Amino acid sequence: MFRSGIFTLFSPERIRRLKVSKKQDPEKELKAKERILKAASDEFVEYGFYGARTQRIADRAKVNKALLHYYYSSKENIYEQVLRTVFGILIERINAIDFENGGKTEKVMEEILNVYERMFDEYRSHLKLMVYEVISGAKHMPKIIIENFSKIPFNPVNGKLYKYLSKEMKEGRMKKVNIYQFLISFIVQLAPVYMVKPMAEDIAGKIGFNRLIVGKFVKDRKKYIMDNFKSSMLPEDKRRKQ
């Protein structure tokens, strides 16, 4: 009798009904997945991949562990999905920039900075996880990059950003340099500021300074980056017209 009760509890039909019931509320399911991914990114940033625990991720996300494993079969699967999600959002937002009708070169480059700024504000722990992934050997990112290669804005085959910068340089609106070297230098000027922004705000508050000072510094940093871009990358005749 006990055995038959167990078989009834975990029968294929019962499992099928449970799965169907979970799919009846797509909005609730989406929010649960978002909470899990946010909780997972915090967990991985704090403990690393090997130190992270799925039970703590479930606790952070306020879901039971069984539901977590229903959506994501393993810790590695969750980890990859966090990276895949934030990478996908980043390339989608850069590709949404109107490169053809975006106006002056500096306006387009400023919009790229704005994309990264919003990403750091909205997905700080996710981006920290990407940094962790890179410095710990980048075991998972190559797979994600290959999956999304045709969509990546700076891929040299059909990337929108790569084609735009190539055209700007070819037509004399930007100095000719190695595009990848330029992009790395351009973005890296902003990234560290946002990585330490929460810590800087915390320190400012504890020593009696207004936290808004940090926000002003970030704003000034963006202006510095754009001024540096104009002086180093725009031809002299174009700078004189500004």
Rank of each mutant, 00 (worst) to 15 (best):
V82K: 09
L83F: 08
L83H: 10
L83W: 11
L83N: 03
R84P: 11
R84F: 13
T85D: 02
F87S: 10
G88E: 09
G88S: 12
G88K: 08
I89S: 05
L90K: 11
L90Y: 08
I91F: 04
I91K: 03
I91H: 02
E92S: 03
R93D: 01
I94V: 15
I94L: 13
I94K: 10
N95G: 12
A96F: 07
I97K: 12
I97E: 09
D98H: 04
D98N: 05
D98L: 01
F99G: 05
N101M: 14
N101W: 13
G102R: 00
G103I: 12
G103F: 08
K104E: 09
T105D: 04
T105V: 13
T105G: 08
K107E: 12
K107R: 12
V108K: 00
V108R: 02
V108C: 00
M109L: 11
M109G: 02
M109A: 04
E110V: 07
E110P: 06
I112G: 10
L113E: 00
L113F: 06
N114S: 08
N114F: 03
V115A: 07
V115I: 14
E117Q: 14
E117L: 15
E117V: 15
R118M: 11
D121P: 00
D121R: 02
E122L: 13
E122K: 12
Y123S: 07
Y123R: 13
Y123P: 10
Y123W: 14
R124N: 07
S125H: 10
S125E: 10
H126T: 06
K128T: 02
K128W: 00
K128P: 07
L129K: 01
L129M: 08
L129V: 03
M130D: 02
M130L: 14
V131T: 10
E133Q: 13
E133T: 11
I135E: 06
I135S: 09
S136D: 15
G137D: 11
K139S: 15
K139F: 15
M141H: 04
M141I: 15
M141Y: 07
P142K: 05
K143V: 11
I144P: 03
I144V: 00
I145D: 00
I145N: 12
E147R: 14
E147Q: 15
N148K: 13
N148T: 04
N148E: 09
S150T: 12
P153W: 06
F154Y: 12
F154P: 00
N155W: 10
N155K: 14
